[in-house]
Write a protein that binds this DNA or RNA. Structure first.
Lengths: 137, 137
DNA sequence: CTTGACCTTCCAGTGGGGGGAAGGTCTATA
DNA sequence: TATAGACCTTCCCCCCACTGGAAGGTCAAG
């Protein structure tokens, strides 16, 4: 399962879209281990590493946390995985997203409503400040 | 503009709903300065302070950052403010929220779609992993 | 032989707090 | 009067997911 050639962190970064600093950070977390260390102490990455980095990037783009990605990577690398486990992770994340969206929407509507009632002129009266002042425990 | 009596941080916390730790943190940021220090070095808060803490809490609940709250507090305390300025801050925040909601919704739909196509059984085949593997730069 | 583009490690900061140590203070009760 | 316990103080470290920068090593081109 060796895939030459080996590249430096800068090249792996260019080919994966993950910043070099972030690649080192992921290594520290145990997510991506470079295939080898070169004689000059540089990290050496292979195609497998690049593929892993792309996987992480895609998962980050879909809003998965690094903890969730850790689990996803384990499933990704496990040929005997059950797709059930992947689906469960994904659906849990969808639920999380639904909660966040609902919360943000509620906030957005409240604020837009307050702003709609504010004249927005040179006078100091402002229902937005009035509402913030009122303790809505 | 003195409003006795003075209370300790615990009482201010109970009356404002802001944890004592957080009150100290806000002080460090220059958001709330206790009315006085008691002889025993305890912080002493008055009704004004409590009102400010409630204001901050309400603004946090509406998703404003502490930086934005800093500006909101300046307007709140300025009797010669123009409601225009408050409204502008609020609407900018609504726009931010709209972007976040749109982004999260896009992610949510993508992920739900992927999950919908995953059988979720004991077999390893999984379109979710397939998609993560594919580099969607 | 120098310049500049890489690479290395380590330390610090972001935002918005939370946890907990080590120690001072105050009040109620035995 | 002693002591328990509930406060308060400052201090530093932890979370997440990075990002920036300093100080120094390595390598290819001119």
């Amino acid at each position: 399962m060796k895939s030459n050639p080996v590249m430096t962190i800068g090249q792996a970064s260019a080919r994966s879209g993950v910043p070099a600093k972030t690649i080192r950070f992921y290594e520290e977390l145990g997510l991506v281990k470079p295939a080898e260390r070169l004689a000059n102490r540089y990290r050496g990455y292979d195609e497998n590493n690049v593929q892993t980095l792309r996987f992480i990037r895609s998962a980050r783009d879909l809003g998965f946390s690094l903890q969730e990605i850790h689990k996803l990577l384990a499933l990704y690398r496990n040929r005997r995985r059950a797709s059930e486990d992947v689906k469960r992770l994904a659906l849990a994340h969808v639920t999380e997203l639904d909660h966040k969206i609902a919360e943000l929407t509620r906030i957005r509507d409240t604020l837009a409503d307050l702003a709609r009632h504010c004249r927005g002129d040179q006078r100091p009266d402002c229902p937005i400040l009035d509402e913030l002042e009122r303790a809505r425990s």
